[in-house]
Design a protein around this nucleic acid. Sequence first.
DNA 1: GCTTGAAGCTACAGCGGCTGTAGATCGTAT
DNA 2: ATACGATCTACAGCCGCTGTAGCTTCAAGC
Lengths: 141, 141
Amino acid sequence: MLAIGTLAKRTGTKVQTIRYYEQIGLMPEPGRTDGGQRRYGDAELDRLAFIRHARQLGFSLEAIRELLDLSDMPDRSCAQVDAIAQKQLREVEARLVRLEALRIELQRMIGACNADRVADCRILEVLRDHEECLADHAATG
Amino acid sequence: MLAIGTLAKRTGTKVQTIRYYEQIGLMPEPGRTDGGQRRYGDAELDRLAFIRHARQLGFSLEAIRELLDLSDMPDRSCAQVDAIAQKQLREVEARLVRLEALRIELQRMIGACNADRVADCRILEVLRDHEECLADHAATG
DNA sequence: GCTTGAAGCTACAGCGGCTGTAGATCGTAT
DNA sequence: ATACGATCTACAGCCGCTGTAGCTTCAAGC
Ligand SMILES: [Zn+2]
Ligand SMILES: [Zn+2]
Ligand SMILES: [Zn+2]
Ligand SMILES: [Zn+2]
């Protein structure tokens, strides 16, 4: 049986985060010592490791909740699991496109500035006037 | 003189957001009608347009605050402005690297799944065991 | 058994950047 | 004069934690 701090270390999670997951029903209420301290077993360790790994891959807590629910139904088709992962991939790709456009625009701004007085700074000029931009971030974001 | 709703439309901002910017001191307290409604002039319009454009380029409100302060000192060197933009670029690049690694990992997961039963789903297996991953998102994230 | 100090407990506030709501008041066109 | 949309204040909620205050409990050393 693991104390919450040990569980935290083993999974690379903060203690408060574990309690937060419990509060929102993502982690189950664990057993307690007579004194009221939480004690965890291997099932909880696995579950938390799953959650943390999914978080590292960018899944939202809501998506993770669905994935955990689904993984309790081993005989079902995994189509729904795959759909969740596909959706996540599409979101990541969309963010990549947007970030890449941002990168280009920032690079252009910075490249245009000849590091003179604020009054003539090209960076500030671009920020003041979107007409100077190539990308259409107004629509994208 | 513009009412807040008109200012909102002209800059693509929500009315509440403008009031929020005022609350945190990013927008100045505007003049008011006898009845207490806010009225804005061109200076405020320009300032809000600047803020929104910088937001679209991913700058934090804190960075924008600095940029606005700096642009009130036209005779200074713009080195500090450039530094803020450089920092923003570096952050965008870092996020790009991280997101790209995520994209690869997600694609790999999804590609490995042969859409069978949940019990055999490769996506869930990868989520359960980071050893199956190539990327080191544990450290990056 | 006793002391100590780390680790645990609850409850709540705060982060960034908004967004939404309720219920009252204001402005303006007819 | 009336109607109706726009605006007002104040506050709660979103996500995913993180930090704090002020306690109590646990485990190791003596
Ligand atoms: Zn410059
Ligand atoms: Zn632009
Ligand atoms: Zn699958
Ligand atoms: Zn992994």
